[in-house]
C-alpha cells in the first residue's frame, strides 16, 4: 500500500438495485499516469468520483496516500463517516478536473484559480493572485486572467480548471474525460497540458476515450466493463494482440479515427 498514491479495495457501488461498481480493487502507483477506459456506462466516472468521495461507496475502502477516504472503521469493524474536517484534509491531496469544467461563472479566470488560496489557504489577496498567475502561466493563459468563463473557449476553460486544481498543490490529479466536451480542434491544448503534468511526475488518474493519449502517456491502463474491472496492465501489454475479446469489441466501437495507428 505504501508505494501507492491511491489504493482501492473491494469497492462496491450500488444505485438502488443496480450494481454500478462490482468489487473493484485497484492500485494507483505514485508518480504515474493511470488511465481508465471502457464503454460508456461501465462505471468509470463513478469509480473516479469515489476516489474523491464525491460518490459514497456502498462497500469497500479507498486509501489516499495511505489514509482512509470518506469512511473509517471503528474498533468493532463498523464503517463510519469520516468527520468533515478529516475528509477535507484527505481531499486536499486530490485535484479533480471535470468533463464540464465546472468553473465558477461569476469569477474571472484569476478569481477561479485564487479563490481557494484565499478562502481555504487564507493567503492574502495579493499572494493568492500571484500564485494563481503562476498556474495560469503554466497552462498558457496568463493573458486571459481577467476573462470570465463565458468569455473563454472550452479548451481555455478546461485549462483554467486544471490551473485551479494545481494551485492547491495536490499530490494526485483526477481527470474525468477532460476533453469529451471539447470541439476536436481544442482537445490538443488540454492534452498537452496533461502531458506536461505527467512529465513532471504528477500522479494522475485519467478517465478517457482518447485511446491515443492512454497508449502514449499512460503507464497503466485499466479496462472497465459493466462495473467490473477486467484488467489493469501496461499499455504495451493491453494493446498487444491477441486482446481481451471485450477490449477488442470496445476498440472497434470506440476507437477514435486516427488513433488506430497508435495501438
Amino acid at each position: 500500500m505504501s508505494d501507492n498514491a491511491i489504493s482501492v479495495q473491494h469497492l462496491v457501488k450500488r444505485f438502488g438495485e443496480t450494481t454500478v461498481l462490482d468489487d473493484i480493487s485497484l492500485e494507483i502507483p505514485r508518480g504515474q499516469v493511470s488511465c481508465l477506459i471502457g464503454p460508456s456506462g461501465s462505471g468509470k466516472s463513478t469509480l473516479l468520483r469515489c476516489m474523491a468521495f464525491l460518490e459514497e461507496a456502498t462497500d469497500g475502502s479507498i486509501f489516499i496516500e495511505g489514509a482512509p477516504l470518506g469512511f473509517v472503521y471503528d474498533g468493532a469493524g463498523k464503517r463510519q463517516r469520516q468527520s468533515a474536517t478529516e475528509l477535507r484534509k484527505v481531499r486536499s491531496q486530490i485535484g479533480m478536473v471535470f468533463q464540464q469544467f465546472n468553473l465558477w461563472p461569476h469569477m474571472t479566470a484569476l478569481g477561479n484559480v485564487s479563490a481557494a488560496l484565499r478562502r481555504v489557504r487564507k493567503l492574502s489577496r495579493a499572494e493568492a493572485e500571484e500564485k494563481a498567475m503562476v498556474q495560469l502561466r503554466k497552462v498558457g493563459l496568463e493573458n486571459r486572467a481577467g476573462h470570465y468563463p463565458s468569455q473563454l473557449s472550452g479548451g481555455q476553460q478546461q485549462r483554467v480548471a486544471i490551473a485551479r486544481s494545481l494551485a492547491l498543490e495536490p499530490k494526485i490529479m483526477l481527470f474525468d474525460e477532460p476533453t469529451s466536451a471539447l470541439d476536436p480542434e481544442l482537445t490538443g491544448e488540454v492534452l498537452n497540458v496533461m502531458r506536461g503534468l505527467a512529465s513532471e511526475g504528477m500522479t494522475m488518474v485519467v478517465v478517457t476515450h482518447e485511446i491515443g493519449f492512454a497508449a502514449t502517456v499512460g503507464n497503466q491502463i485499466s479496462f472497465l466493463d459493466q462495473g467490473k474491472l477486467l484488467f489493469t496492465d501496461a499499455p504495451s501489454k493491453v494493446f498487444a494482440k491477441p486482446r481481451h475479446p471485450r477490449l477488442e469489441q470496445f476498440l472497434d466501437t470506440y476507437l477514435d479515427r486516427g488513433a488506430s495507428t497508435l495501438v
Partner: peptide, 14 residues
C-alpha cells in the same frame, strides 16, 4: 449546478 458545488468541495471550501 451540482458540479459547481462539487468543485468547491474539492477546493476545500466548507
Amino acid at each position: 449546478p451540482t458540479g459547481l458545488v462539487e468543485s468547491a468541495d474539492m477546493a476545500g471550501f466548507t
